[in-house]
């Protein structure tokens, strides 16, 4: 049987939700970079790598930023983790689906 948690779940919630947001953001940015020609150049942070460099760098920045914000707000708190966990996993699954080219091409 599980015991009473010694550490509040806020820090873990911040980590999983920001990871889910990062995966989802990466997928959305990849689609935007592909579908909107106007975004191709701004997302080309490194010319040899092309828009992939911007897509991944922006997604990583979103990840680190959201993680830092959630961590600062939730570190000492105990949250309804079932909901946070569901959202994080849903974003992760959506990220997988949206990076799959046949599905992304339907959008």
């Amino acid at each position: 049987m599980p015991n009473t948690p010694a550490i509040p779940n806020g820090s873990g919630a911040a980590a999983i939700l920001s990871a889910g947001i990062a995966c989802f953001s990466l997928a959305v940015l990849a689609i935007l970079g592909d579908k909107l020609p106007a975004l191709k150049a701004p997302l080309t942070f490194s010319k040899p790598t092309g828009p992939l460099s911007g897509v991944t760098t922006v997604a990583l920045l979103i990840w680190i930023l959201t993680w830092a914000i959630f961590e600062a707000r939730w570190r000492q708190k105990t949250l309804a983790l079932a909901r946070v966990s569901f959202v994080a996993l849903a974003l992760l699954v959506l990220g997988f689906l949206l990076t799959f080219p046949p599905l992304a091409d339907l959008l």
Binding site: A6, N9, A13
Partner: peptide
Amino acid sequence: ANHKHLRTA
């Protein structure tokens, strides 16, 4: 082990 949902995630 004491955080069921966190462990699952």
